[in-house]
Design a protein around this nucleic acid. Structure first.
Lengths: 347, 347
DNA sequence: CTGTTAGCGCGTTCAG
DNA sequence: CTGAACGCGCTAACAG
């Protein structure tokens, strides 16, 4: 990996055509020192106009692009941040639109700030340790976590290593968090069902190792308790299949239920199918309300009444918080985004 | 940015607690040289067992993680590769499952190889030049392009800069390409419609600045020409809205059409809606066939007959090709994956 | 098998 | 305002 030696025979010693031009080569071509080129490239204003132009010309002709590694070795910055998606790639990029929407929000905000987004999925133990090494190894300036599980130690680990962290889905951490008002949204949904005269209201809850799963169940319980009604609960894992299975379970346990709040739209889609198979009409026999308001909700048959959470805004907000963190500015320790009931046909 | 100076007063000079341990600190703690630590960290077998253990212990205690920039500055490797998605983040992470599925395939394969995936969207000119600087700047070892547009100069640019490239959607490049058999799949679809006795078969074509758009239209034309029938064409851009508009156009131009091949499932979904609004039954009055076989196809009403392309396999194949390229091995210049007609209800 | 040495390409003092 | 010199943390020759 060493540069070519001078050619034997005493001809003029020319630097070999290396793959990429370096600062030094630009400097030589422009007839200035490396330091001056560096200043120009980094937009310092303390360079004489003619030199600056010479440097810019030389850089353009050579197609100079600073070497990322060399630069970040000395600056300790990379101008890129990671978004960690604590699921397998299969899950992240499935038909659940949650992660894609978060990504979209993050990407938009980072793009505007000229930062780069690195996506990491940590669905396996191996992937998790790779992500750790990646972040701690200084590949990125900070790390954002989407939809964390309770048991995930990665955020704390990174914090301890001095990596700036922003998260979603675990509010009690020593890092700024972005989340939505799960409980308020679910209460509105259940109250809507009660106001419609529904009396036996069940729920398909989400996974209980996640805040989103627990709080949506809490909201349901609180609303029912306030109306002095009994809770009827089945638990799924946010997938359509689990929603289908949970709905069957509910129908078996409680055949006379007349409404169900399902903790995600994807599960609601599965639940609708189970109701159809059981010969129940929606919303005639059973009212159904979902949670998320992803595109699928409008495709459902009938179109799904659901609690909208601003998913892309979670991403945007995380990104903005991270950018502020990287600038050393103050940030809100906890940001709660609003949810709202979107009434369609299923309830 | 300089290390703390020795403390005045002559006490023992201790290295200040820097943010992250370096090779040197591990070496000192283990009582060996930096080189030996480097060897152990990089898994070389030429280190005596006792030293290796001492190094491993020291590294573990200090929580040593190699500094990415320093390493890749000398190795010229980063162990990560980029996947470029030549659309805006909004488009990439929309309800079109194409990109997510490609990502999934790429991620799976790269994961298995211990490489990291960096996702870049190049929907704007600015994003494009940022991606260029990123790749040329040596952040990644190679670049993969998904679903290229004809006019995209980025691949050639990167090639010229010596960056390894693999692409999808532009087969005539000086880089290995992965694509699917568009024409064969579409021919099968149209022939299926003809065999069913359909006589006035229209098409909603995709964007004509992409191979996928052009070849699917070609396949349609070839199959109709072989049957001595007239082509009836409207053009969309692969979105549901454009499919809806194109279908309305077709119905206005050719009210007695009895079948339509739509060049993407998302457009087909829009087309179905337009047909419904126009009071045409599917498949009674009009047969509809889509292209892709994403999850949406099964949600359609009626479930969509469609040409399946192995989207995730495109991603896997791109990743495998890239890995081989990075190892300096031979690769196929062109890989064509098969398509197949999946018959459901809409035709 | 191990340690010593020389850069990788760049930003950044510090003199001039 | 400019250039010379140093070091970021690491790998890879080269000696021993």
């Amino acid at each position: 990996m060493r540069r070519a030696e001078a050619v034997a025979g005493g001809g003029p010693v020319r630097a070999p055509r290396t793959g990429r031009p370096t600062l030094e080569e630009v400097a030589e071509r422009a007839g200035v020192s490396r330091a001056t080129v560096s200043r120009v490239v980094n937009g310092q204003t303390t360079v004489a106009e003619d030199l600056r132009r010479a440097v810019e010309a030389a850089a353009a002709e050579l197609g100079y692009v600073p070497h990322a590694a060399a630069r970040s070795l000395v600056t300790h910055r990379t101008d890129s941040v990671a978004l960690i998606l604590p699921e397998s790639p299969n899950r992240v990029f499935s038909d659940d639109q949650f992660f894609p929407s978060v990504i979209r929000g993050v990407a938009a905000e980072l793009d505007a700030a000229g930062k780069l987004l690195v996506l990491l999925t940590t669905g396996s133990a191996e992937a998790r340790s790779r992500a750790e090494r990646y972040a701690v190894g200084g590949h990125v300036d900070g790390v954002m976590f989407a939809s964390l599980h309770d048991a995930d130690l990665l955020p704390e680990l990174m914090l301890r290593r001095g990596v700036p962290v922003v998260c979603n889905g675990l509010p009690h951490l020593a890092a700024p968090c972005i989340d939505v008002d799960h409980i308020g949204g679910v209460k509105a949904a259940v109250e809507f069902l009660l106001a419609k005269g529904r009396r036996r209201i069940a729920t398909v809850a989400g996974p209980q190792d996640m805040v989103a799963g627990r709080e949506r169940l809490d909201g349901y319980r609180q609303a029912l308790a306030a109306a002095d009604r009994r809770a009827i609960v089945a638990v799924g894992d946010f997938t359509a299949e689990s929603g289908h299975a949970a709905m069957r379970q509910l129908l078996a346990d409680e055949p006379d239920l007349d409404a169900v709040f399902v903790a995600s739209d994807l599960m609601a889609h599965g639940a609708l199918q189970a109701l159809r198979e059981a010969g129940r009409s929606v919303p005639g026999d059973v009212s159904v309300i979902g949670f998320d308001d992803i595109a699928l909700a409008t495709y459902c048959d009938p179109p799904l009444t659901t609690v909208r959470q601003p998913i892309a805004e979670i991403g945007r907000s995380m990104a903005r918080t991270m950018l502020r963190l990287l600038e050393g500015r103050e940030v809100e320790p906890l940001t709660i985004l609003p949810t709202e009931l979107v009434v369609r046909t299923s309830a």
